[in-house]
């Protein structure tokens, strides 16, 4: 019963990944993320604007745990306006994680939404994570607010100043339950880079290339 509830809950929740989880048709995206919690590399391909398939490798730093997963993301809703766009995505991944010589099934599922104009940015995501044999479940939320100090032309360098708030209610270390990180996002043509530093004094570095 507990597992059924969890599965349903996970279907209603999402995974945490802040770059667009679905690209343009025939687009490949490589995303790497490095923060206090993990190193993550994610390669996905979008056959259409509506979904992407990919592979994810994650190394969880604290538990020295590795995980490899297949990923399927779907664009559920997109609303275009003259100067803005908002999106809702369903994100999922399923695979296996290994630590201490053991291997167990694992998965994440959830939703993320964003609204952005050329000047302002906001996003929210919520994810449920499950590790089979150890029966560990956790929930994670993340919100971002951003403003562009200037509006760049097409082909130029675009810059965003952002504040990221993370909520990890199941985190054992209480100081990591709620994390605020000022950050800077810069992107030019196919490349996007994010650097940040949390009030808990943890560095964050993310890099995305889309081609």
């Amino acid at each position: 019963m507990n597992k059924v509830f969890l599965l349903v809950a996970m279907l209603l929740f999402p995974s945490l990944l802040h770059a667009r989880p679905v690209s343009y048709p025939d687009g490949w995206t490589l995303m790497t993320r490095n923060n206090w919690e993990k190193h993550r590399a994610h390669l996905h391909y979008s056959p259409t604007k509506n979904y992407s398939v990919g592979v994810v490798y994650e190394h969880f730093r604290e538990d020295d745990e590795d995980e490899i997963s297949l990923q399927l993301n779907r664009l559920l809703l997109r609303k275009n306006r003259k100067g803005s766009q908002r999106n809702l995505y369903l994100k999922s991944q399923a695979g296996a994680s290994g630590w201490g010589g053991k291997l167990e099934p694992s998965g994440q599922i959830g939703f993320s939404g964003d609204w952005e104009s050329r000047k302002y940015y906001s996003s929210y995501s919520i994810a449920g994570r499950y590790e089979g044999f150890s029966d560990q479940t956790s929930m994670h939320q993340m919100m971002r607010l951003g403003v562009a100090p200037y509006v760049g032309d097409y082909g130029s360098l675009h810059t965003w100043i952002m504040l990221q708030a993370e909520h990890h209610p199941h985190e054992e270390d209480e100081s990591r339950e709620f994390i605020l990180s000022p950050m800077l996002r810069m992107f030019k043509s196919e490349y996007l880079m994010e650097i940040g530093y949390s009030f808990e004094r943890d560095f964050m570095f993310n890099f995305v290339v889309r081609y």
Partner: peptide, 9 residues
């Protein structure tokens, strides 16, 4: 909906 460089690309 044309708000980001990736969309334009």
């Amino acid at each position: 909906g044309l708000v980001c460089e990736f969309c334009a690309r």
